[in-house]
Structures are given as structure tokens and as C-alpha cells.
Design a protein around this nucleic acid. Structure first.
Lengths: 151, 151
DNA sequence: TATTGTTATACTCTATAACTATA
DNA sequence: TATAGTTATAGAGTATAACAATA
């Protein structure tokens, strides 16, 4: 097992390298949509869970609240997302996609699906599924809930 | 398969989450050494491959040359690494650890081994090996050579 | 003169603390 | 007054282009 690269069995290093490779393909394919992976994530989540609070979104994406604000501001300014005040606690806000947001997401999803396809192709279907399983296991074993109490 | 988190089968998203989790543990355990994961990587590689050129290091770590300079500057200023001019081509430089660099690395490696142990424990030995294999496969299938022509 | 390294700089991401608004 | 969000700001990480030094 290659002692060639002394870091090739450091999980953190390999995760970084893998992420680099995957993000690069993602970004190339979604050029022109002017959405970072993070921005895309927001749209993708709000599409399936409209009315989600910023709070919750922050947890699901593992962002800091302050940075989430900036992210949403940008999406709102572009008319992709709306904030609606709700009466639950404090300053709470419900987030949803606008029609424009849904449209953009749908268009972008075509590219994203191709991206996911290529990743699956690069690994082979079986290994691809296995990798996802292992990543979930790693994250969850670290005490991070992936889906938390989603609702 | 949880449609709970709409992104849990996006490889890029999961890689980010996993890296977050792994790096967090790495950083906690190596607090006090005042070395980022990148800085550690440099020491670890130079320890096993003394005399390596900056050039090559840049490739192995997937850094930009300009950023590698800054990184090495810091390590050199701290007396952990030395640059020696060599006569190959252009401005070429050979990098090596100083005694101090070796000492620091050795101390840090104790913590790093504990970190790697925990990761192995979190996944189980078998899954841990499997994850490494899949990450390597993913990176290499992306056209990135992990060990290149290392020498 | 091609190769390698360096400088300067800017942009994005992430992190922290202090502040605001509302049930 | 606890909760949710916001502002301001600083630091790390990463990217690009133009430049310098040497075989």
C-alpha cells in the first residue's frame, strides 16, 4: 500500500482531496447559474421543505447563523427565496422558494444530476453507494445529526 | 433511504460534512502545536522525502504555488523547515526538515495517531479501510494523481 | 528562454462577539 | 427573558496575474 504518499491513509487529507475533485466538477457544470454549492443546497432543501426556519437550515447545512444570513440575503435579493415572519419565538422567519427560485433550481438540477451521474460512474454504482454509506456513518458517529429533527 | 435530508446522497455535500467532522477532531487534538492541517502535511511529507522541491510538494498537496510559498515561509520562519538552493532548473529549491521540525513532527504525530485511531474506531477497522480505498479511487478517477512521479 | 519560485492582491469561506427584535 | 436573527468584522483558505531568478 503506497507508502508513496505519506498522507494517503489520513482520512482528513483524503477527504479534502476528494472534495476538491468533486466540487470542481460541480462548479464547472453549474457555471452560469451563479450559485455556489452552498446556495444550491439552500434551494434544494427549501424545495423539499418549504417554510423551514433559518435556524433549522443552519443546522442542516452546518453553517454559522451569521453566515447563513449573508447567504440568504443574496438569494433573496435575486428573488429566489422569500423570508416570511412567523409567530413562534423571537424573530423567527420561514423560508421558501419563489417561483423563480423553483425554476432556477429545476434548471440547475439537470446539470447537478449529470454531475452526480459522473460521480457514480467514476466510482461504479456499488462503490458509490458504499461511499455514501460510509460518509454518513462517519458524520453521524461524530455526533452530528444529519437530519436532526427535521420537522 | 432518508429523503429526510435531500442532500445526504450528494457526494460533495457529504464529503464536506465528513471533512468538517474529521478536521474538527484533528484541530482539537493538535491545538497548541500551532500548525494547520496543511502545515502538518508539509512536515509529514518532508520527513519521509527530504530534499523535495517546492514544485513537487505543491502537486502532492494540491496547493497553488503562491500559497505554498506563504506556507513554507511560515514554517521556515519558525525554524521547522529549510530551503536549500539546488542546481536543476530555474530557481529550484530543496526543502527539508530541521531537527526542530523533526522533533515537533514527532510530538505532533502522537496526537495525530490518536486522531487517526479515533477515526478508525468511529468507522470500524473494515469500513475505515474501505473508506480510504473509495476516496483514493474517487480522487484518482478524477485524473488527479495522488503520488504522481513522487521521486 | 523555459522553468521555478515569489510578490501582490483580491475574493470567498468561516468564525466570533455584540446587538436587535419578538413571543 | 429566552429565542431567533442580524450586523460588523476579522481571519483563514484559495485564486490570478505579473514579476524575478537561474540553469
Amino acid at each position: 500500500m503506497s507508502d508513496l504518499h505519506p498522507l494517503s491513509d489520513h482520512i482528513g487529507f483524503m477527504l479534502r482531496r476528494a472534495q476538491l475533485s468533486v466540487f470542481q466538477d460541480f462548479q464547472q457544470r453549474t457555471e452560469g447559474f451563479d450559485l455556489t454549492p452552498a446556495g444550491y443546497s439552500v434551494l434544494a432543501i427549501l424545495d423539499r421543505h418549504p417554510g423551514m426556519r433559518q435556524n433549522k437550515l443552519t443546522n442542516l447545512l452546518a453553517l454559522k447563523p451569521a453566515n447563513c444570513v449573508t447567504l440568504i440575503n443574496g438569494l433573496e435579493r435575486r428573488g429566489l427565496v422569500v423570508r416570511e415572519k412567523i409567530k413562534v419565538a423571537g424573530r423567527a422567519v420561514a423560508l421558501s422558494l419563489t417561483g423563480e427560485g423553483k425554476t432556477l433550481l429545476a434548471e440547475m438540477d439537470i446539470q447537478v444530476e449529470e454531475h452526480l451521474s459522473l460521480m457514480r460512474q467514476r466510482l461504479g454504482s456499488e462503490d458509490h453507494a458504499e461511499l455514501l454509506r460510509l460518509l454518513r456513518k462517519l458524520v453521524e458517529s461524530g455526533g452530528e445529526a444529519l437530519a436532526d429533527d427535521l420537522l
